[in-house]
Structures are given as structure tokens and as C-alpha cells.
């Protein structure tokens, strides 16, 4: 099976005294993984490395069979836009843009033509199509989280990464977000990695990588 993530001999030094080493890790295409670890264990650091926004001190990182830190900065930006979708703990949509414009922006940054049908399709699959012309400040927390998932999957990324997506949610909402992430992953035939210290969702995954 084709590999989506492969890290080898990976380490990141925050400074001279603090360095973190990561075990080698291979994730196959279409798998769903949980990245577990306590606060300060290096989850976010690993996610930043996987998404190409933090260069590791040593080691090799391959995403979708591309050694991403061998890419030039502009190529890495484009690679990220086309192959990786990220969902953050807080939705953090751009406040000055409507939901639809937030999604159009994601298409534009990937260098893709504007595709409003695709936006409508994604928003409908997440049950927020009625809010497409609303600004983030007018939406509920649940709607915002759905919109942030929509933004992450709009370009059909091969790898969907979520950083603590359920930590600040109650059980019901955490369950919904988790369901939506899994649904979208399957819909787009993507690979899912969720970084969390939230023990509530541990049972929903068969693959875990612990830090």
C-alpha cells in the first residue's frame, strides 16, 4: 500500500538544551490515526513539521511520497495547499470574509480556479450551506467548527490533519466533530491524523502514535 506519511530519524531542537526525538512512523494512504500525547510532549511540533511549516533539525519527512523539506519554499506552500488540510482546535476563520469567501480563499491559495459548486457540495455535506454568505461572527461555535472542516477539505487534500479538534467541546459536539472528520476523510479518500490528549476519542481509532 502507498505511504502517506513517513518519518525517519526525526528530531527537533527548540534550543541547545531542549530537543525532541520522534520515533520512525509510517502511515498508509486511507488510514486514520490518533497522535496521542500530553501537553508539551511535542504533538504540535510534530504536526507543524508534517504540515511543512516547521523545519526539523534532523531527519526525513515524506508526505504523499514527497520529501517535503527538499522542496523550495514556493513549492512547499503549493504542496501544502493541494495535499494537506488542517483543522485547528479553534475554528479561526478570517473574520472579514464570509464562509464562502473563506473557502474561495483556500481554493485561490492552492492556485485552483474558483469552484462554487464544490463549495456548495462541501457545505451541504457538513449541513451549513445555509450559512455560506454569513460572516463568522454571526455563527455558533458548532457551525464555525464545521466551516473550518469545510475549509480544510475544500481542495480534497490527501492528508487531513486535526490539532486538538475536540478538546474544548462537550461530549456531544466532540462526537459530532469526530464523525464529520471521519466522514469527510472517507468522502475524499484521504488519510486522517488527529493530534489530541482527549482520551474520549481514543476508542474511535485503531491506529495510534504516542509521544
Amino acid at each position: 500500500m502507498q505511504q502517506m506519511i513517513s518519518i525517519k530519524a526525526l528530531a527537533h531542537a527548540y534550543n541547545q538544551d531542549k530537543k525532541i526525538n520522534f520515533d520512525d512512523w509510517q502511515v498508509s494512504k486511507g488510514e486514520q490515526w490518533l497522535l496521542l500525547g500530553n501537553s508539551g510532549s511535542g504533538k504540535s511540533t510534530l504536526l507543524h513539521i508534517l504540515t511543512g511549516i516547521l523545519s526539523p533539525s534532523t531527519g526525513q519527512v515524506e508526505i504523499n511520497e514527497t520529501e517535503i523539506y527538499q522542496l523550495k519554499p514556493r513549492e512547499l506552500d503549493r504542496f501544502r495547499a493541494l495535499h494537506i488540510g488542517i483543522v485547528f482546535q479553534r475554528p479561526h476563520l478570517i473574520k472579514s470574509l464570509t464562509i464562502q469567501e473563506n473557502l474561495l480563499m483556500a481554493q485561490s491559495f492552492a492556485g485552483l480556479p474558483e469552484n462554487r459548486n464544490r463549495i456548495q457540495e462541501v457545505l451541504e455535506s457538513l449541513a451549513i450551506s445555509a450559512s455560506s454568505h454569513q460572516y463568522p461572527s454571526t455563527l455558533s461555535q458548532g457551525q464555525l467548527q464545521r466551516a473550518s472542516i469545510a475549509r480544510a477539505v475544500i481542495n480534497k487534500p490527501a492528508l487531513l490533519i486535526a490539532d486538538e479538534p475536540t478538546s474544548s467541546l462537550d461530549d456531544q459536539n466532540a462526537g459530532t466533530v469526530l464523525r464529520l472528520l471521519k466522514e469527510q476523510t472517507e468522502l475524499n479518500q484521504s488519510t486522517l491524523v488527529i493530534a489530541t490528549h482527549d482520551q474520549r476519542i481514543k476508542e474511535a481509532f485503531t491506529h495510534t502514535y504516542t509521544l
Binding site: 495547499a81 488542517i86 485547528f88 479561526h92 478570517i94 480563499m105 491559495f109
Partner: peptide, 16 residues
């Protein structure tokens, strides 16, 4: 700052 960081994660280049 965070908005701009989010834009970078969406693939916006530094020059953008």
C-alpha cells in the same frame, strides 16, 4: 497575526 498564519497553512506564500 493568527489570520496570516492560517493563510500560510492554507498555502499562501510569504510574498502573498
Amino acid at each position: 497575526q493568527y489570520d496570516l498564519a492560517i493563510m500560510r497553512t492554507l498555502g499562501a506564500s510569504r510574498i502573498k
